[in-house]
Nucleic acid binder design. Structure first.
Length: 294
DNA sequence: TAAACGTGGTT
DNA sequence: TAACCAAGTTT
């Protein structure tokens, strides 16, 4: 391990300062942890908390969710965004109940085989739900490593090497490794933030290369800028989904297209394009001139 | 491999 | 206020 002092400092800080998030409760089941990881993909903790609690209350096991229509998952997803995740989580629940006897698998390869689970989520579940020793790398971890280890203001594009780097920093023991994974994420989320890092509260400030170098403005070539949301197909899709979530019955397709245009569009073909893409994604089902959740 | 994918909080 | 950013995955 490259920096034993660094790992010890992160773990001590985490033990003292970690937020008491419900999915970190020792009583949290692997399924509850898996659900939290799905919801937290690209979505902030504060917005997830109430949806997660309601979800676990209603569907305490994968089989409970699998027994419902996928549309119920989309409805319960509410406005968390990226509603395909709700569909994928439902599909994963079906797969777990059918292939794994309703028990979330602990093996990374088996987790990766589930719908909607990629390199981050598979390892997060294996580590946080089962205590196994793997590197867990998310956007927070990548930023902390970029700054503290490489002296860069920001992380570059995600790369396979990120896992190797984190592995090299991981404590040998499973427990210490799990805490370190969580601690690095927490550090990036609440202290080593993207915009205004709170270095005065940072447990590894003394080892931070970026701080040591005087905070150079040396961020690597950045990811392409996020497209403007206003006027986007994403926004138009969102309008259709909002209508269908609140409708207990199927709505005329014409109404869905009208809702898509409500508020203005940049391109007159947008409502149709957005609607068709939702059907293609399986988020909308059309039957006899009406549209509804799947 | 790059583009597509929601929604809301923060600066 | 507009731009940035967020516990990523899929095709």
């Amino acid at each position: 391990m490259a920096h034993p002092e660094l790992a010890r400092a992160v773990n001590e800080w985490f033990a003292a300062h970690a937020r008491a998030l419900p999915w970190r409760d020792p009583e949290a089941t692997p399924w509850a942890i898996l659900v939290s990881e799905f919801m937290l993909q690209q979505t902030q903790v504060d917005r997830v908390l109430p949806r997660w609690a309601a979800w676990i209350e209603r569907w305490p096991a994968p089989s409970a969710l699998a027994a419902e229509e996928p549309g119920e998952a989309v409805r319960a997803w509410d406005r968390l965004g990226y509603p395909r995740r709700a569909l994928w989580l439902h599909r994963a629940a079906v797969e777990i109940s059918e292939r794994h006897d309703d028990a979330v698998p602990a093996d990374v390869e088996q987790l990766l085989a589930l719908t909607g689970i990629g390199p981050y989520t598979a390892r997060a579940v294996a580590v946080f739900a089962f205590g196994d020793r793997h590197p867990v790398v998310d956007t927070n971890t990548r930023r902390v490593i970029a700054r503290a280890v490489h002296g860069r203001a920001a992380a570059g594009m995600p790369a396979a090497g990120d896992l190797v780097e984190m592995e090299a920093l991981l404590p040998e023991d499973r427990g210490g490794a799990a805490v370190f994974n969580a601690g690095m994420m927490e550090l990036g989320a609440v202290v080593c933030t993207a915009r205004a890092p709170r270095c005065g509260d940072c447990p590894i400030a003394d080892w931070c290369e970026w701080r040591g170098a005087g905070y150079p403005d040396n961020a690597p070539a950045q990811r392409p800028k996020q497209a403007k949301f206003a006027g986007s197909d994403r926004q138009v899709r969102g309008r259709i989904m909002a209508l269908l979530r609140r409708s207990e019955v199927a709505v005329p397709v014409a109404d869905a297209l009208a809702a898509a245009a409500d508020g203005g569009v940049r391109d007159p073909r947008q409502p149709r394009r957005a609607y068709d893409s939702l059907v293609a994604d399986g988020l909308v089902v059309e039957l006899e001139g009406t549209a509804r959740l799947p």
